[in-house]
Amino acid sequence: MLLTVTDIQKTYQTADGPFAVLRGIDLCLAAGETLALTGESGSGKSTLLHLIGGLDTPDAGQIVLQGQDIAALDDTGRAALRRGTVGVVFQQFNLIPSLKVGDNIAFQARLAGKHDPAWAATLAEKMGLTPHLNKYPEQLSGGQQQRVAIARTLAAKPKLVLADEPTGNLDEATAGVVMDLMLQLVAETGAGLLMVTHSEALAARLSRRLHLRAGQVA
């Protein structure tokens, strides 16, 4: 099993006191499998994604990725996990505005020491970004920027791709194109995919779905 999540709990402090976002979540994901995480706003989808990606730490529970317990890692260990094993696609793209498109695509792979120029060129080609490699992100449309973000994630050949509403900022037609490309490339790399989405249509295209309600699996 690529990923096993057991009884994960997370609580935030708010103005009104502590708020339990996740209250004992369990899930598992095999390599090459795609899983949609759905639920209302505030149900804990993004929080769960962040915990699995090593961007945050759980209060209790276990997250085992490729046999390694993420919750037990320190900051350096989680950073190594993020650059080598996991790839995150954000809703806001989170590109580096001062780097050109080509450098953005190569960035995470370089961090991980896995930069493969041929693979990066293939990804750019498949994403239709080759003519834009020398442009800055601000010169691209939203759909193009999200394609750069996906290419950046896949360029590092992660074992697990985490996507947080990757098409949330795009129109329907562009979202469809971007989704097609992402699913195709994830399948080619054999990585697992865990995607947070509000869209029933997108969720239906993945192999499995997990619905969260008030921090628990519904």
Binding site: A79, A80, G84, F90, N94, F107, Q108, L111
Partner: peptide, 15 residues
């Protein structure tokens, strides 16, 4: 700040 956050999210160690 956003760039720093992105770089860290992509796996750059804080130190």
């Amino acid at each position: 700040r956003p760039v720093v956050r992105t770089m860290r999210a992509l796996g750059l160690p804080l130190r």
